[in-house]
Write a protein that binds this DNA or RNA. Structure first.
Length: 223
DNA sequence: GTCCCGAGGA
DNA sequence: TCCTCCGGAC
C-alpha cells in the first residue's frame, strides 16, 4: 500500500499563493539570461548543474559570445570548447553540450526539442535540465525538481530535513507535477528555486522570516 | 551507490 | 576541514 500523503488541494493552493506573493516582493528575477532563446537556456542550465549562479553568469556571457547559436557550437573544435569552459569544473559537461548541439543539428534540424521527453533523450540532459529547458526556454507548464525544489517540498509537505532528502524522488516529482500551475509555470518554477536558494536554504534556512511558517511541516528548523 | 569538479562559506 | 551548489551518467 502506498503511504497516504494527505496533501489537500487547499494546501497546494496556499503554497502556490504564498510562493508567488513572496516572489513578487523579494524574488531576484535576474534577467541575466535570454529566455527567449532555448539555446541560451540550454547553455545556462548545463552550466548550472552543480554550479552556483554567481559563478555561472560571467562564463555564460563569455561562452555565448564565442558560440552564439547551436550551429556555431556544433562546428567548433571540441578542445577549444573545453578550454572555454574553464574553470567551471565537471569538464565532461562542455563535451556533452557540444554533442547535444551536434545532435540537434543532425536529428532535429537545428531546433532544440521542447518537451522533457525528447530533451531527455540527449546525453547530458537529465530530468531536471529537461524540465528547465522546456519551461524556461519554451514556457511549458512542466514540473522540475532540483536540489532546491526537492528540499523545499520535502520540508513544507513532508516535514523532513535536508539530510534525509534524496529518497522518495518519485513522490517529489509527482507532488511537483501537482503543484505546477498551468498559467504562469515559468514564474512559479523560477520562484520555487529562488525561494530554496535564498530562504529555505540547506544549512541555515531563514525560518524566522519565512512566508511558509504557517503551512510548513518542518517549521521551525532554526530560529 | 559512486564519480565527476571547483569556488566559496561555515 | 567539511558542506553545498538551479545534476547526470555509470
Amino acid at each position: 500500500m502506498p503511504k497516504r500523503r494527505n496533501i489537500t488541494a487547499d494546501k497546494r493552493d496556499e503554497f502556490r499563493r504564498r510562493l508567488l506573493a513572496w516572489y513578487a516582493e523579494y524574488g531576484r528575477d535576474l534577467p541575466w539570461r535570454n529566455t527567449d532563446d532555448p539555446y541560451h537556456v540550454l547553455v545556462s542550465e548545463i552550466m548550472l548543474q552543480q554550479t552556483q549562479v554567481d559563478r555561472v553568469i560571467p562564463k555564460y556571457h563569455e561562452f555565448l559570445e564565442k558560440y552564439p547559436n547551436v550551429e556555431q557550437l556544433a562546428d567548433a573544435p571540441t578542445d577549444e570548447v573545453k578550454e572555454n569552459w574553464k574553470p567551471l569544473g565537471y569538464n565532461i559537461r562542455p563535451v556533452r553540450l557540444q554533442m547535444i548541439a551536434r545532435e540537434v543539428q543532425a536529428e532535429y534540424g537545428g531546433t532544440i526539442p521542447d518537451t522533457p521527453e525528447e530533451l531527455q533523450k540527449l546525453k547530458g540532459i537529465g530530468k531536471y535540465t529537461a524540465g528547465a529547458v522546456s519551461c524556461f526556454g519554451y514556457r511549458k507548464a512542466v514540473p522540475l525538481v532540483d536540489t532546491n525544489v526537492d528540499r523545499v517540498l520535502q520540508r513544507v509537505f513532508f516535514g523532513k530535513h535536508a539530510s534525509e532528502s534524496t529518497k522518495d524522488e518519485k513522490q517529489i516529482w509527482e507532488l511537483a507535477a501537482e503543484l505546477v500551475p498551468q498559467e504562469n509555470a515559468y514564474d512559479y518554477n523560477q520562484a520555487l528555486m529562488d525561494f530554496g536558494a535564498t530562504v529555505c536554504m540547506a544549512r541555515k534556512p531563514l525560518c524566522l522570516v519565512c512566508p511558509m511558517q504557517a503551512i510548513c511541516a518542518a517549521y521551525p528548523i532554526s530560529a
